[in-house]
Simulated scan of single mutants.
Amino acid sequence: MDQSSVLVERFEENRAQLRAVAFRMLGSLSEADDAVQESWLRLNRSDRTEVENLGGWLKTVVARVCLDMLRARKSRREDSLDSRTSEVKAGGADPEEEALLADSVGTALLVVLETLAPAERVAFVLHDMFDVPFEEIGMVIGRSPMAARQLASRARRRVKGAEEPPEADLTLQRNIVAAFMAASRAGDFEGLLAVLDPDVVVRADRLAVSFGAAPEVRGAAEVAGTFLGRAQAARPALVDGVAGLAWVVDGRPRVVFELTFVNGRIATIDLLADNEVHQAMDLVVE
């Protein structure tokens, strides 16, 4: 068997997974096939002697192709979700395979994925559905591994939030944040306990730890003690559409306090000081 035939055979061995990856990113069977075909064309144009892991290489290429397609789609603002999901029902050359592919994702999840930004969707699909490391995802989307992790985390929260009843409207979230800030600045321990979930968790990234934050603090009493008399320079902020806080220095966020809420209380506080993570956020300091 010549090298060309071997390459075709090896590509076909990976086709099913590549199509699954592309479908989850694009939500369209025809576009998924286009992305897989483009990966084949790029493979033929590449120096294959440098490709050690063909499956991983192809997955990365397909992901980059899908990212470009998602960005182009967003700029055009065309192709409604209904038109794409209707392809699943219509079937194709292999209706059984297409039905299995669609069932493995589900229309409800496709609806949620449509709300994500292109880089969020790629990061979420690659990591949560195909266990691709953040180091590799970062190379696909042109971000650091930390920023890729943040994008996947944000996407995951949005997916989970769409599956569950929404927690508190924005006005209530802002009121909780305002009460947290007031109690922190005043050294009001009981006031802090009132707005913290009993099992609240505070996590800090490595840069925030270098500023003096503890890597992790658990429990309302411990967290209240951590913030007692603090937050003097913190300002209210919207972090990906959710009420939060930001420590701003010279007009730039130094640390972002990303919050989640459960039953009208703060359940998690993520202290994020990595500037690349900030750039990946939809951040509005108020």
Rank of each mutant, 00 (worst) to 15 (best):
Leu151Cys: 05
Met139Asn: 14
Ala182Lys: 15
Ile176His: 06
Glu190Cys: 00
Pro215Gln: 10
Ala194Thr: 01
Leu126Asp: 00
Val223His: 01
Ala147Gln: 02
Gly229Ala: 09
Leu172Gly: 00
Val195Gln: 06
Glu167Met: 11
Glu135Arg: 12
Glu135Ser: 14
Arg185Gly: 06
Pro166Val: 11
Arg149Pro: 00
Ala155Val: 10
Phe134Cys: 04
Phe211Leu: 15
Thr171Gln: 13
Ala168Gln: 11
Arg154Glu: 13
Arg154Gln: 11
Pro215Ile: 07
Asp205Trp: 05
Gly187Leu: 03
Ala208Met: 07
Arg235Trp: 11
Val177Gly: 08
Val132Ser: 09
Ser184Lys: 10
Ala224Phe: 02
Asp103Lys: 12
Thr171Pro: 00
Glu190Ser: 10
Pro118Ser: 07
Gly106Lys: 06
Leu207Phe: 12
Leu196Gln: 03
Phe211Tyr: 15
Val223Phe: 01
Ser210Leu: 14
Ala204Lys: 00
Asp199Phe: 00
Val112Pro: 01
Phe134Leu: 13
Gln173Glu: 14
Ile137Arg: 04
Ile137Leu: 10
Arg235Asp: 03
Asn175Asp: 15
Phe124Tyr: 15
Ser144Gln: 08
Leu170Tyr: 12
Arg121His: 05
Ala108Lys: 13
Thr115Cys: 01
Pro133Ala: 09
Ala147Glu: 10
Ser184Trp: 07
Glu135Gln: 13
Val105Gly: 02
Asp188Arg: 04
Leu193Arg: 11
Gly106Ser: 06
Val177Gln: 06
Thr226Asp: 02
Ala221Asn: 01
Ala204Glu: 03
Thr115Asn: 08
Gly106Pro: 07
Glu114Gln: 12
Arg218Pro: 01
Gly138Asn: 06
Gln150Cys: 11
Asp103Ala: 14
Ala117His: 11
Pro118Ala: 08
Arg203Met: 10
Leu228Thr: 07
Gly161Tyr: 02
Gly212Asn: 09
Leu192His: 06
Ala117Asn: 10
Val217Phe: 01
Gly187Gln: 05
Ala155Lys: 07
Ile176Met: 07
Ala119Cys: 09
Val202Ile: 10
Asp205Arg: 08
Leu151Glu: 03
Arg157Asn: 05
Val122Ile: 14
Val195Pro: 05
Phe134Met: 13
Arg143Tyr: 10
Glu167Gln: 15
Ala162Glu: 12
Arg143Asn: 08
Met129Thr: 08
Leu109Trp: 06
Arg121Met: 02
Ala178Arg: 14
Phe124Glu: 01
Pro215Cys: 10
Pro118His: 06
Ala183Val: 07
Met146Leu: 14
